[in-house]
Design a protein around this nucleic acid. Structure first.
Lengths: 195, 195
DNA sequence: TGTTTTCGAGTGAATGCTCATTCACTATCG
DNA sequence: CGATAGTGAATGAGCATTCACTCGAAAACA
C-alpha cells in the first residue's frame, strides 16, 4: 500500500468525486475512476485497500478539511449567536462552492454499503461535536435558553442544514443557497411563533 | 401482472420489509424475500414489474397510509400550534411503533438506486405538502410569524424530524422517541434564544 | 355424474450480465 | 541489474430475471 500523499492518491480521490458526481454512485465503476485519474485499474489497489477504502478516504479528506475550516472560522467569533451564524454560513457556502463534492457527499455516498456508511458516520460525529460546542457556549453565555435540550438542538441544526443542502441539489441548485443563511439563523434563534 | 390486492401482493411487501430490516438493503435478494413470503422467486414477477417496483410499492403503501393517518389526526385540531404538535407526535410515534418499517424507510431504502429514490421522493412530496399546510395556517391564524419563509420552515421541520428518527435508529433506539415531541415542539416555536 | 380439455397461477433451476479484484507481466529508475 | 510502480486482460462471484414446465381447478362436453 503506497503512502497517503502521492500525487496519484489525490488524483484518484479527485477522479472519484468527479466520476461519482457525473455518473452517480451506481455507475461509478473502478475502471471509470481509474480512467478519469489517468491510471490503470490495478493502480488504485496500490493506493487503496479496495473500492470502499477509496470512498471512505474521499469523505475523510474532504469532510476533514471542511471541519477544520469551520472550526477556524468559528474561532474568529466570540458570541455564540455569531458562531451559530458562522456555522450555518460555512455549511451552505461550502456546498455552493464545490457542487461536485456536495453531490457526492450529500446524495451519492449515502447510497453506499454499510462499511462505507460507517466510515462516513465516524467523520460526521466530529462535525456534530462542533455544533455541540456552539450550543454549550451559547448556554454559558446566557444567549441560548438554559432549558433547550442539547441533543435536540443539535438535531435541529444539523437536520435543517442537511435538508437545506439536499433539497437545493435536488432542485438543480436553482437559487442562491447562501441567501438562506440569515433566515435560517433567525428561525433557529427566534422560532416560528409570533410575539 | 396480477392485481394490487391479492394476499400474495401484501405478503411480498411485508416480507420485503422484514427481510430488508433484518439483513439490510444490500443483502435483501429477491430469493430471500420470496422465501420469507412463502412464494417462489418467479411469483414476485407476477405481482411486480421488477425488484425496484417491489421497493417503490412498499414505500408508497406504507408512507401513503401514514400520510393519511397524519392528515386525519391534524383535522382533529384547530390551532396551527396544536396541529404542529400533532405532526411531530405522529411522525415520532409512527417510527417508534413499527421499528422494521422505520429502519427500512429511514435507513435502508435510501441506499437504493435512482429509480427507487425517485419513486420515494414523489411520495415524500405529499408529506411536505402536509407540513406546508400547517405553516400556512399558522400564519393565517397569526400564531406564526409572518416573516418566516415558508420553504425554510418546512426544511427545518422535516429535516429535524428526519434527523431525530435516523439518529434514534442509529443509536439502537435506546431512548423513548416520543418523549422528544414536546421539546422539539417548543424549540420550533420559541427557538434557541433566551428572553 | 363422469370425463376431457383448457387455463393460468405458481415454480425454481438456468442464464447472462456486471463489476471488483487479482496477478503475471512490463517499464523505469537508481 | 535488482527493485519498485504501474498495467490491464482475465477471473469469478453475486444476483436479477427468465421461461419451460407443473398442477389443480374450472369449463365444456356427453
Amino acid at each position: 500500500m503506497a503512502k497517503k500523499n502521492g500525487e496519484k492518491y489525490q488524483a484518484i480521490i479527485d477522479a472519484a468525486v468527479k466520476v461519482i458526481a457525473s455518473y452517480g454512485y451506481h455507475n461509478a465503476q473502478v475502471s471509470k475512476i481509474a480512467r478519469e485519474a489517468g491510471v490503470a485499474d490495478g493502480t488504485i489497489y496500490l493506493y487503496f485497500e479496495n473500492k470502499d477504502d477509496v470512498l471512505i478516504s474521499l469523505f475523510k479528506e474532504k469532510m476533514g478539511a471542511f471541519i477544520k475550516a469551520t472550526r477556524a472560522c468559528l474561532d474568529q467569533q466570540f458570541h455564540a449567536e455569531e458562531k451559530l451564524r458562522g456555522l450555518i454560513h460555512m455549511h451552505l457556502r461550502q456546498s455552493s462552492q464545490d457542487r461536485n463534492l456536495a453531490i457526492v457527499t450529500q446524495i451519492e455516498l449515502r447510497q453506499s454499503n454499510p462499511a462505507v456508511r460507517e466510515g462516513i458516520n465516524k467523520v460526521l460525529k466530529e462535525y456534530l461535536d462542533v455544533i455541540d460546542e456552539v450550543i454549550i457556549l451559547g448556554k454559558e453565555q446566557k444567549i441560548f435558553r438554559h432549558d433547550v435540550e442539547q441533543r435536540i438542538a443539535r438535531k435541529m441544526i444539523f437536520g435543517t442544514l442537511d435538508e437545506a443542502v439536499t433539497s437545493w441539489i435536488m432542485n438543480d441548485r436553482k437559487y442562491d443557497l447562501v441567501s438562506l443563511v440569515d433566515p435560517i439563523h433567525d428561525l433557529f434563534l427566534n422560532g416560528l411563533k409570533s410575539v
